[in-house]
Write a protein that binds this DNA or RNA. Structure first.
Lengths: 229, 229
DNA sequence: CGTTCGCTTGAACTAATTCAAGATAAGTGG
DNA sequence: CCACTTATCTTGAATTAGTTCAAGCGAACG
């Protein structure tokens, strides 16, 4: 079942069985209870992970202690390739938001894999490049767009990532506090709360404690893209 | 002299002579007059460049037409590896700000190089990873820090990158309009102007038309790091 | 049943933007 | 060399988006 997991993640997708097998066999399974950390910002970068089960949060802490969330991830998602390859230390935290499991390769195992299968180095380059372009886009958003629009985008992104249908819309399938949305969009919990209240009055979303339900995705998209209506 | 240039840039640094030679010989030299574009956002990504001479600006245009600057670069700087490897299109503009020259590898040449010399794929991974971590830090800055601080950082970064000593300080060695600084820090030309005026009154910088001179780097660092004094 | 945690809302405040007007400096052509 | 034109920059005043702080609500949880 390890190879099945790998097959489902972009990094290992469509690779020959022998590569998958050798990758799967050189990984260790690590269990991390909800709230605990896979790794913390500043620690020596020791492992490359593929999240196998659960959910996790990638975040950075500013020198002043303010936190910002770089991403919320679910399985199967690759994390730490950059650190494990290039960097001496992890540049951010990876915290399990529920009980989670990850396949972990230490640096030696990763290096051995990359050397034995050069295609994995190219794949890694693809993956990191793709993430770079995404991050660049989010940087531009942050530099040029208003909070409401950034929040709309963030919610749509999360809904696309993990949502479950309900009677009156789709609910984002992870616990999502106002504070999380604030740290995800670079604003405050108060502004998020006000914005969600306004959207709720307009019938675009319904929301409650750590929960957001999308009722009218089209109108939220209109806000995200700054369309009329 | 091509190999000398390559030797000076991180991507090719400390490689065996045969690799340098093969890289140098498969590149084409391209001249781009000041103001013209090496490539534009949205175009098919055809080449990987190493800027050989001149200066250039990496920028994105928002759908609304607002521009943001992702970086100002001088020789020798590698650009386009992400696009040429991974992407179908360039995700941003590369505009020469003065008459410039670049070594250019088309996709076939690049692929051949990477296949012949696997170390180049690993190097590329390193390079992109490093840029990713940098961008992540700038993202955090943008999300959490005030304009004055971001501006201080941007100016210090530019001064470190390219500056020339003068009677009363170091001058940033590229033409740098208020508008450029605004697009680099995610603010407006007016706010930049006011901030620079205040700093000038305080004796921290001197500035004029498209020019900034650092008089008291220590105090600017204090602003950038939010230290007392 | 009370405490805690997350959420809402109001009111005051502030950083930054927007717009307008004018100053300064750099080319340009006579 | 000078007037003319253009681009860059400065500054003030009005405005606004968003923050901060304080108070209170309501659902979850022991």
């Amino acid at each position: 079942m390890r190879t099945d997991l790998l097959r489902r993640c972009g990094y290992f997708h469509n690779l020959p069985a022998d590569i998958l097998a050798s990758a799967a066999s050189s990984a260790q399974l690590r269990h991390v209870p909800g709230g605990e950390f896979f790794f913390r910002q500043g620690e020596p970068a020791s492992h490359f992970y593929v999240l196998a089960a659960g959910n996790a949060r990638l975040s950075q802490i500013t020198p002043e202690g303010r936190q910002i969330i770089m991403g919320l991830i679910g399985p199967p998602h690759e994390i730490g390739i950059i650190a494990a390859i290039a960097g001496a230390i992890y540049p951010l935290d990876l915290q399990a938001t529920q009980d989670s499991q990850g396949l972990a390769w230490d640096r030696d195992a990763l290096r051995a894999l990359l050397e034995a299968h050069p295609v994995l180095a190219l794949r890694a380059l693809h993956m990191v490049s793709g993430r770079f372009v995404e991050l660049q886009d989010r940087y531009r958003e942050l530099a040029t767009e208003r909070v409401e629009r950034r929040l709309a985008r963030a919610i749509l992104r999360l809904a696309a990532q993990a949502s479950r249908p309900e009677a009156d819309g789709v609910t984002i399938a992870v616990r999502l506090a106002r504070q999380d949305l604030a740290e995800l969009t670079g604003t405050t919990l108060f502004t998020v709360s006000r914005t969600l209240s306004a959207w709720e009055d307009a019938g675009i979303v319904r929301s409650g404690r750590e929960r957001v339900t999308l009722c009218d995705p089209a109108r939220l998209t209109a806000i995200a893209e700054d369309l009329p209506g």
